[in-house]
């Protein structure tokens, strides 16, 4: 399974990299979005996916054997990362809109000079 997931992540990365190399800023944003998803997956994978239990301590028990659950730490990290990447994506979206309004284009190459 890890092998397949790794290939999947690789594919997402390929898509993401291809998209961020486009000149159209809309595609660049989509690319950033794909890349952040793929990166979250890498972190998730790093925690180990063999143990497929939920990260909860059952009612009545005081502890749980860590071998039974997925590693909770990467989950916590990814959870905040997801929310932050949502915030950042919205920020870029706003930025893009402003950029389009000011320049009238969505071609990034037009942005190479800051003077005019």
């Amino acid at each position: 399974m890890e092998l397949v997931l790794a290939i999947f992540i690789g594919l997402l990365y390929a898509c993401g990299v291809y998209l961020v190399l486009r000149r159209s800023i809309i595609k660049v944003i989509l690319g950033v979005f794909v890349l952040s998803n793929a990166t979250n997956l890498i972190i998730f994978l790093a925690g180990g996916i063999r143990r497929s239990g939920k990260g909860f301590i059952p009612e009545g028990a005081e502890t749980i054997d860590p071998a039974l659950i997925s590693d909770p730490l990467p989950q916590a990290l990814i959870l905040t990362a997801v929310v932050i990447s949502l915030g950042i994506s919205a920020y870029i979206l706003a930025l893009k809109f402003r950029y389009f309004e000011v320049t009238g284009t969505h071609d990034l190459d037009q942005l190479s000079k800051t003077d005019d």
Binding site: L86, G87, A90, Y91, L93, A94, F97
Partner: peptide, 17 residues
């Protein structure tokens, strides 16, 4: 904070579009 952040973003975007 999360509520505020997304509300702020939504309202800003709605205002402009």
């Amino acid at each position: 904070v999360v509520t505020g952040v997304f509300l702020s973003i939504i309202i800003s975007i709605m205002d402009v579009v």
